[in-house]
Amino acid sequence: MEQEQYKNLEQQITPPTPYMKNALIAFFVGGIICTIGHAITYFYIIFFDFTEKTVGNPTVSTMIFLSMLLTGFGLYKKLGQFAGAGSAVPVTGFGNAVISAAIEHRTEGVVLGIGGNIFKLAGSVILFGVASAFFVALIKLILVTIGVVQW
C-alpha cells in the first residue's frame, strides 16, 4: 500500500476531532475558573484593603495555590483531560505546568530535579511573555520617538 493510500485509509477510520464540543467545554470550564477568580477579587477588595488596581497579585497567587492542591491530588490532570484549553489557558494552568513538573522531578534532587525542570513546560510561556513585552515596548518607544503615536 502506498503512503498516500494509507493516509486516506487512516484518516477515514480515525475519529475526527470534536472541534465544537472541545471549544464549548473549554468555554464553560475556562469561564467558571475566571468567575471563581472574579469572586476572589471581590473577596480581597471587600475584606482587605486592596483596590481594583492592586487586587491582581493576591488573586493570581490564590488561584495558583488552589491549582497546587488540585495538581497535587491528581485532580488537575483529570480536569485537563476533560477541559483542554479551558483549564490550560487560565493562570491555574500555568501553575499546573510548573507544579506538576516540580513534583515529577523531585526524585532527581532539589537542584537538578526541581530546579532544572520546574520550567520544563512553562518556560516557553515566560520566554515569549518577556520577549514579546520587550519588543512591543521597543516598537512603541520608536513610534513615539518619531512622533507617530503618543504614550
Binding site: 480515525t14 475519529p15 476531532t17 472541545n22 495538581t71 497535587g72 491528581g74 488537575y76 490532570k77 483529570k78 480536569l79 485537563g80 483531560q81 476533560f82 477541559a83 483542554g84 484549553a85 483549564s87 490550560a88 494552568g93 499546573n96 505546568a97 507544579i99 506538576s100 513538573a101 513534583i103 515529577e104 522531578h105 520544563k120 513546560l121
Partner: peptide
C-alpha cells in the same frame, strides 16, 4: 509517561486516539 510525554500530574487533553 515522564520519559515520553508530560509530567504525570500535568493536565493536557489527550485525543481519542
Amino acid at each position: 509517561e515522564k520519559q515520553f510525554r508530560y509530567p504525570n500530574y500535568y493536565g493536557a487533553k489527550k485525543p481519542a486516539t
